[in-house]
Write a protein that binds this DNA or RNA. Structure first.
Lengths: 227, 227
DNA sequence: CGGGGGCTTGAGGCCACTCAACGATAGTGG
DNA sequence: CCACTATCGTTGAGTGGCCTCAAGCCCCCG
């Protein structure tokens, strides 16, 4: 953890805008870039939260483990997403790169410093925490009360919104990751996808099973009972 | 909803301290008191969030429903707890009084006004949202990966921390409420409690099944695999 | 071209759910 | 104060949805 290779200083910290900063307003805040190899840890649960991250390219999973190895993924972080933002001292999840992933990172300390004087930044940090809360609240409903088919349908709809390009959902994560996100086993996820395929709701692109095209978004949505 | 009887103005708004205000610093903010009868709705999901609430006496459940009636309770609010705090415009859950419940309520508008000028208050609001997020994160792990026995054990340990008086856990909620909180059925909850009783981990007080005494807290904790 | 990881599919098992009966309790109204 | 009723909780029997275990295929990658 925290084994970091040479990083290049980003000359134009454009994604500071996501915290509510323009490049002119706060040229003090340093923004670094770093690439994690597939499967490596970005930070561990209960480690001190020193940085906040934004995915530039790739994908990250945030998860908790039980003592016997059972895993619950709380969220996937995709390009543009900010993760690792904590209010307390330590991280609440372990974060791992699902594929080779490039992130922007910013010292938490400097971010807090700016937030103290810039209300706009503080408001944006609050908004991000709120968004995380909303996602967790919706996910509790899924984990507590939805069937396997409903969970997988909901997952596809979420991914469709978040990472579809050219009509194709290019999933970066494995069936096991999906299963641990949805509170299922990988076999159950696979079966649910097969069923949706049979129903003509989705199709697979090429030879890989990670590229999915939604053929009938409306029908898919009907499998995920909304609240 | 929002059928409100005569409320008496509280002369000493002592619980404003929970937002980081002393009674001297902000005598402007009005704090009302109101009592909801058992089973009545405090607010509904997607209703505009006009007030923030603090439980003075009683208990409240916050839940989401699926279209077919499946229910997921996200949290129980017990005396001292603040609930209904939203960043967005609308409530994310429906809130109902589990038993006759007295709350303090404060206009959201006035709270936001104070937060704008008082950093301490703003920080406390942020902290409350963070606490809610942490609870939801832990609950995702429970709902996604724990067995029925582990869930019930975790529930008892949570309630033990939050509402034990004189060594007795006086549960305000029914088995159905517990089940909908834990993502189980009421029968499964009942069976789990019976098993824990057989194991000598807990006992029931009196004739009611809502008063529980923990006989072996350590053994109970061993049933809930920690992460 | 061999090895390994990822995915699918099948067979069987088990844990939690469903359905049902029953007792106890609390609330209601005569 | 006592039926009457509704609600709550427990327990049993049986079912079923998801899990477990296993085999086999495909693809990637050395």
């Amino acid at each position: 953890m925290f084994v970091r290779m040479a990083t290049d200083r980003s000359p134009r910290p454009n994604s500071l805008r996501d915290f509510g900063m323009t490049s002119e307003s706060n040229p003090i805040v340093s923004l670094s870039e770093f690439t994690y190899k597939k499967g490596t840890e970005v930070y561990g649960e209960k480690e001190p939260a020193e940085y906040v991250y934004q995915v530039k390219l790739g994908a990250v999973r945030s998860y908790k483990l039980l003592a016997d190895g059972r895993r619950q993924i709380g969220a996937f972080h995709l390009p543009g997403d900010i993760f690792g933002l904590e209010n307390g001292e330590a991280h609440r999840f372990t974060a791992e790169a699902i594929v080779d992933t490039t992130v922007h990172l910013i010292r938490r300390q400097s971010l807090e410093l700016v937030a103290k004087s810039d209300a706009m930044v503080a408001k944006n940090l609050f908004g991000m925490t709120t968004a995380n809360l909303h996602h967790a609240e919706d996910h509790m409903l899924l984990l507590g009360r939805k069937t396997s088919l409903e969970r997988v349908a909901a997952f596809l709809l979420e991914m469709d919104k978040r990472l579809t390009a050219a009509g194709v959902i290019a999933l970066p994560m494995s069936r096991r990751d999906i299963a641990d996100y949805l509170g299922l086993t990988l076999e159950t996820v696979s079966r649910a996808l097969s069923r949706l395929h049979e129903f003509g709701v989705l199709g697979f692109v090429g030879n890989t099973q990670r590229q999915i095209v939604l053929l009938d978004r409306l029908k898919l949505a009907s499998f995920d009972l909304q609240n």
